[in-house]
Every structure is written in structure tokens, then in C-alpha cells.
Write a protein that binds this DNA or RNA. Sequence first.
DNA 1: TAGGCCATCTGGTCCT
DNA 2: AGGACCAGATGGCCTA
Length: 151
Amino acid sequence: MKTCKSSHLDSGIESDIQCRGGPACVVKCSSERMESAAKRRLAANARERRRMQGLNTAFDRLRKVVPQWGQDKKLSKYETLQMALSYIMALTRILAEAERYSTEREWISLHCEHFHPESYHHYTGPKMATDSDPYAQRIFGYHPEHFQIAN
DNA sequence: TAGGCCATCTGGTCCT
DNA sequence: AGGACCAGATGGCCTA
């Protein structure tokens, strides 16, 4: 545990409040303020913990909907965000492509064969712009081109 | 053992 | 005033 140093205590708050009870009251009031500040800090810590837990829950939910082919290890937060970005871009591209085809049947027959993870799993194609990103190089997942549809 | 990832604490800032 | 959000610091755990 670190010190109970607090900006609230160090600030000029004390001088704003006139203590009418003499020196004994000053000590009492001061310790009460310390106590109050400590309580507020603990409450803020608990809120922050809950907030971060909520954030982590959201990351876990995102990990479940994002592709993780060939990745036995849990994606880090950064990797999860990158994968989600690539995944959304890929889906967007697919939707845009769908608009180019007149009938739904035509579109489905075009894409069904590409929707198997295996078709991405063994991707060994040339690297592109993400080469400059060490994270992107490290995990297989979120090269946007992994999601590219064969034209 | 170094490096990566993460949880937690903390103080600052902004908003209601 | 109090809560939400953010970023920096710190320490623990895990893996190559």
C-alpha cells in the first residue's frame, strides 16, 4: 500500500473551513477529513476495479465473436482489437461485394466455398502493409488480407 | 532473466 | 461534490 497522500488533503480545502472548536477540534476535524478522504479513495478504487472488470468482460465477449483460427492462446487485448478491426473490414467488403451481384443465389454460390476457416488457415501469401507492425507480424490473425475473398 | 501482458492503485480532468 | 474516464506507475505472473 502506498502513502495516503491526497491532493484533496494537500490542497487548500482546510483553510476554507473555519474550525470553531479550538486546537483539539482542528486535530479531530483533520483526522476526520483524512478518514473521509481515505474512504473516498477506497470507493474510487473499487469503482475503477469494477469499471476495468466490465471492460475485460467486453473484451471476452469480443474474443468470442472474433475469429481465432490456429490461435490456441488467448488473444491479448491489443490483438483482439486488431482482429476485430480486420474482421469488420472483411465483412464490410463481403457486404459491398454482395451488392454487386444481382441475385442472392448467385452471391451465396460465390461465397460459400470461401467461408471455411481452412481456406484462411493455411494462408501463406505475401505480406503487405502490416509488415511494419511487429504485433501484426507476430500473430497470424489480423492481416486484413487474411480475409480477402478470392476474385 | 528479460520482455510481454495484466490487474490494481493513483491523481488529474471532465461531466452531471 | 461525486462519478466516469484516462494515463502513468508498479508489481506479479508467465513464457521463450
